[in-house]
Design a protein around this nucleic acid. Structure first.
Length: 425
RNA sequence: GGAGAGGUGGCAGAGUGGUUGAAUGCGCCUGACUCGAAAUCAGGUUUGGGGCAACCCAACGGGGGUUCGAAUCCCCCCCUCUCCGCCA
């Protein structure tokens, strides 16, 4: 959520930054409502002040012996009643305006960070670095779903029977590989200083609103209608929300968490895209990194977060590149974002395997996650960051392709061999 | 699902109609004492909003109501805990 004060005080600046995004965002309605609201607010609070005064006066007089039906008391009561009548007119108006303003605020995305490259769309993202070209296979390889089916470790047809399209079933070594990857990733990130969390996978509306999935992207998540619960689309949601509505002390920061969860996404509007294989599923596994940090450190924390995600790809010797998203491609809540893209030789392209975003104070405002500096008055919002460390299914896809051997088997990356107790799939 | 208890400041925990934004304790901050620290003593310490400011308003789980006045009384809802039942 953007700071209403900032919108009010620097409307041109805010509008300019929003215009760099993909989509039409207009702060004018908010500015107008805000002006009306402030007028009502000050009228109402003046009336309220007089009303409070009357209440106190009556109390004092009663204590010093006045009778309830003394003329003086009756006059005060009468004035009190008149004020109440006017308040009952103003109050709902004010509340209604406030509700409208809040609702509009929740639909505005974050401002891009000044350092985020300006651009219209994906095509203008900026490559930051590329790693591991020497590990790219030199011969033709089968797409991961074909080699997976061939090896009998991946089955789409039966998963579709059990559930729907965009679900897969892993068998034998496939299931073991998925589990090994989860374990490996968690071990690495725990060693890097992240505290593991195993959060709820069903989460409430308030939590999804705090991290920015709601209200705008309700279509993207599965909902349990009976219960105000949604299937988590990413561990970012439950983990960031661990600290919702809390005031932390500055010395608790930074907080680093890693979490394995399955992720559930409806993938509405992606019909026909990536219909085969492990790339785009309604359910996939992910190890997520989440940081809550002091604002003064958030940029460097972002860099180390990206490095922590990269470390997994490097340990697995999977070729990848790092891309910084331009303003037009930035996610709703992100101020700045790096994508890690892994090499998929069957397609001859890099595919996103991790998205590392700095949300600045955007999520913290929505979730009311604050901290207090010892000895200082007031509170500040933390900065929240997160990134995949990594998407497990896509990692498996990358391994099945990059580690294919000419005899139709797949080599197990050295870093994983001890987890799987085998060297070849 | 049945029965009961409860939701108050960073935390713990008082408070049942009147200047209570809220006792007390812990924590934290400042000062005194000390070479320094601990201990002790004194003072301070909720959050959010409006206003250039003085200052004002709001908030005791949420929403309504009664009243000149509600943390306190009434109604509805939510959540947590305990016991019983059921269950992985």
């Amino acid at each position: 959520m953007l700071d209403l004060k900032l919108i009010r005080e620097k409307p041109d600046f805010v509008q300019e930054r929003l215009n760099l995004r993909n989509g039409d965002y207009d702060i004018q309605p908010i500015l107008q409502l805000d002006e009306q609201w402030r007028k009502l607010e000050s009228d109402r609070s003046q009336l309220q002040a007089r009303s409070n005064e009357i209440g106190k006066l009556v109390g004092q007089k009663m204590k010093s012996g006045s009778k309830p039906n003394d003329p003086e008391i009756l006059a005060l009561k009468e004035e009190g009643n008149q004020i109440k009548a006017r308040l009952s007119d103003l109050e709902p108006q004010e509340k209604d305006l406030k509700t409208q303003i809040d609702a509009l605020l929740l639909t505005l995305p974050n401002l891009p960070h000044p350092s985020t490259p300006v651009g219209k769309d994906e095509a203008e993202n900026v490559q930051v670095r590329q790693w591991g070209d020497e590990y790219k296979p030199r011969t033709e390889v089968l797409p991961h779903w074909e080699i997976g089916e061939k090896l009998g470790i991946l089955n789409t047809e039966r998963a579709t029977k059990v559930a729907q399209t965009r679900f897969v079933m892993l068998l034998g070594a496939g299931a073991a590989l998925e589990r090994a990857l989860i374990q490996f990733m968690l071990d690495q990130q725990i060693a890097a200083g992240y505290l593991e969390v195993l959060p709820p996978f069903l989460i409430n509306t308030q939590s999804l609103t705090a991290t920015g999935q709601l209200p705008k992207f309700a279509d993207e998540s599965f909902k349990c209608n009976e219960d105000d619960l949604w299937l988590a689309p990413t561990a970012e949601v439950p983990v960031t929300n661990l600290y919702r509505d809390e005031i932390l002390s500055a010395d608790q920061l930074p907080i680093y968490h890693c979490a394995y969860t399955p992720c559930f996404r409806r993938e509405a509007g992606s019909y026909g895209r990536d219909t085969r294989g492990l790339i785009r599923l309604h359910q996939f596994n992910k190890v997520e990194l989440v940081k809550l940090v002091h604002p003064s450190t958030s940029e460097q924390e972002h860099q180390t977060l990206v490095q922590n995600a990269e470390a997994i790809l490097q340990a697995l010797k999977l070729p990848y590149r790092v891309v910084e998203l331009c303003t037009g491609d930035l996610g709703f809540g992100a101020a700045k974002c790096y994508d890690l893209e892994v090499w998929l030789p069957s397609a001859g392209t890099y595919r996103e395997i991790s998205s590392c975003s700095n949300f600045w104070d955007f999520q913290a405002r929505r979730g009311n996650i604050r901290f207090k500096e010892a000895g200082q008055k007031g509170t500040q919002f933390v900065h929240t960051l997160n990134g995949s460390g990594l998407a497990v299914g896509r990692t498996m896809a990358a391994i099945l392709e990059n580690y294919q051997q000419s005899d139709g088997t797949v080599k197990v990356p050295e870093a994983l061999q001890s987890y799987l107790n085998r060297a070849v799939l």
